[in-house]
Amino acid sequence: MTEHSDAPLIDSAVEASLEKQQAADSENQRNKKVLARQVARYLMQNPTFFAENLDLLETIQVPRESGKTVSLMTHQTNLLRERNIEMRQRLDQLLQNARDNDQLFMHSRRLVLALLEARTVAEAGRALLQSFRDDFNVEVTALTLFGPLPGSGKQLGDVRSYSRASAETSIGSILRNGRTVCGTLRPAETSFLFGDDAERVASAAVVPLANQLGILAVGSSDPNHYRSSLGTLFLSYIGEILERLLPDMLARS
């Protein structure tokens, strides 16, 4: 008499049961996804739903980065608080920028008026150096004019004077470039532009004045203060004003 084992039948039954369970789980997942989309669509179409059912807000849980869950109402409150703080910070920054711009305008206006009221090169140079030092916190400022100068060329005050040939020898590349230069200069260039103050200058911004009139330079002890990417609109603007005022002053001297 032959003996028969029931093991294969049991294994088949277990496998079939597992497959059925997996199919059911997969179907449940699909149903949950469909239901989630339906709920999301309904809430989008009915934005006042929670306003009309406030009691639900306390029952809905939202996960946080810490791993804890909080009610939707608490989550919304925290989110609004964070956004409020961010908006206040942005507003404070805007107000600070506005104050800085107002101050820049007032300082610029005062400097321009002082230059317009100056009658001599010495007065213009004194107004320029004082404004840059006191109002714009510039460490070192140097205004150099190239000779031979119109008129006598005397009484220049703090304004320096060199021949064009000497300037070509020391800062020829800057002059030929013709545009504002920012960054670290060569030792010979720094020495020519700033004289006795050259040792204090680690970076500089240099504006050649038109018609070979001269050059305006500002320097800082910080090597990163005047970078090649630094905006030079204001310095170029002051240079243009000097280009228009200085020739008449020199002619009257």
Rank of each mutant, 00 (worst) to 15 (best):
M1T: 10
S5V: 03
P8F: 07
S12W: 09
A13D: 08
E15T: 09
E27S: 13
R30S: 13
K33M: 11
V34E: 13
V34D: 14
V34R: 10
L35E: 15
A36G: 01
A36M: 08
A36V: 01
Q38G: 09
V39P: 01
A40M: 07
A40K: 10
P47C: 04
T48E: 14
T48G: 04
E58C: 03
E58F: 04
V62S: 09
R64F: 00
S66M: 06
T69I: 01
L72D: 08
L72E: 09
T74L: 12
H75L: 04
H75P: 03
Q76N: 07
T77C: 09
N78Q: 14
L79Y: 13
R81G: 11
N84T: 14
I85K: 13
E86S: 12
M87N: 12
M87K: 12
R90H: 12
L95T: 09
L95D: 11
Q96P: 02
N101E: 13
R109D: 14
V112W: 02
V112Q: 06
L113A: 08
L115I: 12
E117T: 08
A118W: 01
A122Y: 10
A122H: 13
E123C: 00
L129I: 12
D135Q: 08
D135P: 03
N137M: 10
A142T: 13
L143I: 06
P150M: 02
S152I: 05
K154A: 14
Q155F: 08
Q155C: 07
V159L: 02
R160A: 14
R160E: 14
S163G: 15
E168F: 05
T169P: 00
S173K: 11
I174G: 01
L175V: 01
T180H: 00
V181Y: 13
T184V: 15
P187L: 02
A188Y: 02
T190M: 00
S191K: 11
D196F: 03
A198T: 06
V201H: 08
V206T: 03
L209D: 04
N211R: 12
I215L: 12
L216V: 04
V218A: 08
D222M: 02
R227T: 14
S229I: 04
T232Q: 10
T232H: 07
L233Q: 14
Y237V: 02
Y237Q: 14
P247Y: 01
P247M: 01
P247F: 00
D248V: 11
A251K: 15
